[in-house]
Structure formats: C-alpha cells, structure tokens
Amino acid sequence: MATETPPPSNTQTRFPSGEEFAEVQQSPEFAELRHSYRSFAFPLTVGFIAWYLLYVLLSSYADGFMGTKVVGNINVALVLGLAQFLTTFLIAWWYARHAAAQLDPKADAIKSRMEGDA
C-alpha cells in the first residue's frame, strides 16, 4: 500500500525512560512547544465555540433579525449559516499552517533527540 511517509521504524528506535520524559517535560524546548501549541489552539477553540454558540442563540432568540432578506430569498440566517462553513474551513487551514511552521519542527527535534540518543 502506498504511503506518504515512511513507516515508523519502531524496531530500531528505543522507548525513553521515565526520567528522560520527566527531564524533557521540564526542558525549555518542550515548554516552548507546549506554549506554541496551547497559545494557538486554546484561544482559537474558545473563539470558534463562542462564534458557533452566538449563531445558535441568534437562531433561537433573534427570529426577526435572522429572517431579514439580504438578496432575493436569501436571508441573514442562511448567510450566517454559510459563514460558519467558511470560518470552519479557514480555521482548519490556519491551524494546518501554524502546525507545519511552528509545531512540527519543534516536535520533531525533541522526538529525534529522545529516540536517537541511545
């Protein structure tokens, strides 16, 4: 079966000890990776959930506003619903870009150091 990445060669890598994990967890490199991940993912999660809940609440309690016609039979409710699709696509794309640029290099460096130094 075709693969994009080479299969993990678990047989050659070793599993680090508990001390090593504790040490890495306390290291500045790992702190940076964790910060880079959390400071991106957590606020963004709060943001998109708030935006989604706003949409749900408007649908429940702002019928007049949601029913306002924008163009032809297309009303605010439909536009806001489609906007949820758009923001979902955009956030997914944005996270993928952030992960490739900021997270993967840091994570790979730590992983190869931990699995490599035997």
């Binding site: 890598t13 508990g18 994990f21 967890q25 997270l103 790979d108 931990m114």
Partner: peptide
C-alpha cells in the same frame, strides 16, 4: 501520577515512542 503525566504530555505533543 506525575511521571505518567510527563510521559503522556511529551508523547502526545512530540510523537516520541508512538506505535
């Protein structure tokens, strides 16, 4: 279990020792 959390946290973010 602090040791296990260290292991899980490092593994989950870096993929170290992933199956």
């Amino acid at each position: 279990d602090a040791a296990k959390y260290a292991e899980l946290e490092v593994r989950s973010l870096t993929g170290t020792g992933a199956h």
